[in-house]
Computed example of a mutant assay.
Amino acid sequence: MKSCFGVLLYCLSFFQVDISESYNVKDASQILAQSNAQRRNFGNLPNARLPPRTSNSSHCRSRPLDLVFIIDSSRSVRPGEFEKVKIFLSDMVDTLDIGPDATHVAVVNYASTVKIEFFLKDHFRKENMKQAISLIEPLAAGTMTGLAIKKAMEETFTEQSGARPKSKSISKVAIIVTDGRPQDQVGEVSAAARASGIEIYAVGVDRADIGSLRLMASNPLDDHVFYVETYGVIEKLTSKFRETLCELKAEVVQDPCHCEARLAFQRQTQNYIQDLNAKHILSFQKVEQMMAHK
């Protein structure tokens, strides 16, 4: 019986050596050493470039949209706060590709009345659009959010106003920014807007009613409802919307030494041998236990 166990132990040892030699390594530490050496060599290549980071703005452009901002300028929004909303809109414009064949932008301003500040067809240069945003004035009293959504749906998301026809499959997106509770009904009109193909994002600030935001927004709600405590931090949403509205166009960068492929292979090899070593040790322990009971 002991001779059988000896043969088994010999076979296990031979199997481990065979696997290690097939990968041209002696143990996991050698893999790590090779991996570190290749990292150093790769970093010293004169023209070496790592694969692109997708968060780099130079590799990212917004997908074409028909985008309408619907902004609350009711009495509860103080003048300084409204200026921060305008900065947010301006920053958003900077993240987008604006143009006849790219993204079209409109702004709907509302309080107790609704004013279309400019249509989707009005501005195709960022400078002109940002200038128009800077001239927007608050409307003061009231919070007729439902009326604003209805007017946006009927008067801005139309081909006459610069929206593309359905045949072009351009996404229609509305971003609503409000800090209060609507004084009219928003559920039915929002449902009609969504049914017409408009994707709605609802941004609540400070005293905004979360229930109303959820009634307005598209599903899934976790992706379409946002809340910030003050207008002072609303600009933080710019990067969030940029991720949402952005279509990554990362260029393909060649790996001149194939270092990334080698490192990936070595990591896989290391994991495999570590797993094999663990199984090997477990087998020895079981054999020792069996021999101890003989």
Rank of each mutant, 00 (worst) to 15 (best):
R75N: 11
D66V: 09
C60K: 11
P51N: 01
N56G: 01
V77A: 07
P64V: 02
A48T: 11
D91C: 14
S90P: 08
L50K: 12
M92S: 12
L65M: 07
P46D: 04
G99D: 04
L89P: 09
D94V: 14
I71S: 08
I71Q: 11
S73P: 08
R63Y: 04
R49C: 10
R49W: 03
C60S: 15
V77T: 06
L89N: 14
P64T: 06
V77G: 10
G99V: 04
D91A: 09
A48L: 02
K86C: 11
I98L: 03
V77E: 03
N47A: 12
R63P: 06
R75W: 01
K86E: 02
P100T: 03
F69A: 09
I70C: 15
V93I: 08
S55N: 11
A48Q: 14
S76H: 02
P46W: 00
L50Q: 11
T54E: 00
P64W: 06
I87W: 02
R78W: 05
P52C: 00
F88G: 09
H59G: 10
D72Q: 06
L89K: 09
S62Y: 01
D97I: 01
E83T: 13
S57K: 15
R61S: 08
L96T: 13
T95Q: 06
P46V: 06
L50I: 09
I71N: 10
R63F: 02
P52D: 00
R78N: 11
P100H: 08
C60E: 12
S90M: 13
S74P: 08
I98A: 00
V85W: 05
C60H: 04
D94E: 10
L50H: 07
L96D: 12
S55A: 13
D97E: 14
C60R: 15
I71P: 05
E83F: 13
V93R: 02
G99M: 10
L50E: 09
V85C: 10
R53I: 14
R61C: 01
P100D: 02
P100A: 00
P52N: 05
R53D: 15
D72P: 07
E81S: 11
R49M: 13
E83G: 14
H59M: 04
D91N: 15
P79K: 15
E83M: 14
P46Q: 06
S55F: 07
G80K: 07
R49E: 12
R49A: 12
R49K: 12
I98M: 01
N47V: 09
D94L: 14
P51Y: 00
P79T: 15
H59N: 09
R61Y: 05
L65C: 10
F88H: 07
K86T: 09
T95P: 13
R53L: 10
D72I: 07
S73A: 04
L50V: 10
S55E: 13
R63I: 08
R78K: 12
R53V: 11
T95G: 06
P52E: 05
E81M: 05
H59V: 09
D72Y: 04
F82C: 02
I98P: 12
P51K: 04
R63V: 01
S55Q: 07
I87L: 14
L89G: 13
V85D: 12
C60A: 14
